[in-house]
Each structure stands twice: as C-alpha cells, then as structure tokens.
C-alpha cells in the first residue's frame, strides 16, 4: 500500500479539480440529453460521485479527515435519494405506462 500511495504524490490538485469538473459537466449533459427518467437519475449519481471525489482530494490535500466523513454522509444521502426516487419512477410508470419525462408535463404552467 505504501508504494501505491507514493504514486499519487506528484499529481497536482488542479488535475483532480479538472477531472471532477469534466465528470460533473458530463452528468449535467446527461440530464439535459436523455428523456429516460432512470438514465437522468444515473446522471445525477454521476454528479454526486464527482463531488465526492473532489471532497476526498481536498481532504487528502489539507490533511483533514472531516472531508472524508462528509463523503460518507453524501453516500447515505444518495442511497436515500435513490430509494425514494426509484419508488416515484415505479409509481409514475404504473400510472402512465411510460418513463418518458416529457409525458410528465402536467405540472407545467
């Protein structure tokens, strides 16, 4: 494990921020691009995960364990969110026989 952690030592913090920003933007793109509600949910998970990675990188950079504890809380939150969200999607599918989000425009206006 020591040799493994030594490999990371030369990566600048900017590159971690860059990676997280790119993956977050891909998640935003997925939300805008797709009409399948489940795929939109997966894009949201992607965004949550990129934030997790960035929090961990900052936590290692600052030598502060609080960042990693926060990532743990975000994971608990994501689990709760996925459970409720998928239940809502199942309910929507039962009522409308589709998970196309463009069908769900009754709350518009």
């Amino acid at each position: 494990m020591e040799s493994l952690t030594n490999t990371i030592q030369a990566v600048p913090l900017n590159h971690y921020i860059l990676l997280s920003a790119i993956i977050f933007s891909i998640g935003v793109m997925g939300v805008l691009l797709r009409r399948n509600a489940i795929v939109i949910f997966m894009s949201v998970e992607l965004m949550l995960n990129s934030v997790n990675l960035l929090l961990t990188a900052f936590s290692v950079y600052r030598g502060d364990a609080a960042g990693q504890v926060f990532v743990f809380f975000i994971m608990a939150l994501a689990a709760a969110e996925v459970a409720v969200g998928l239940a809502i999607i199942v309910m929507i599918y039962r009522n409308t026989n589709s998970i196309d989000i463009n069908v769900l425009n009754r709350l518009k206006w």
Partner: peptide, 15 residues
Amino acid sequence: LGTSAPVVLKDPNLG
C-alpha cells in the same frame, strides 16, 4: 488559479 501544489498525503492514517 495558476499552478497548484501537488496532493501529498501527509498523514498516512488519514483515510
């Protein structure tokens, strides 16, 4: 931001 310092693990027991 310009150049940044590398991510160095100061305390190996952190995580």
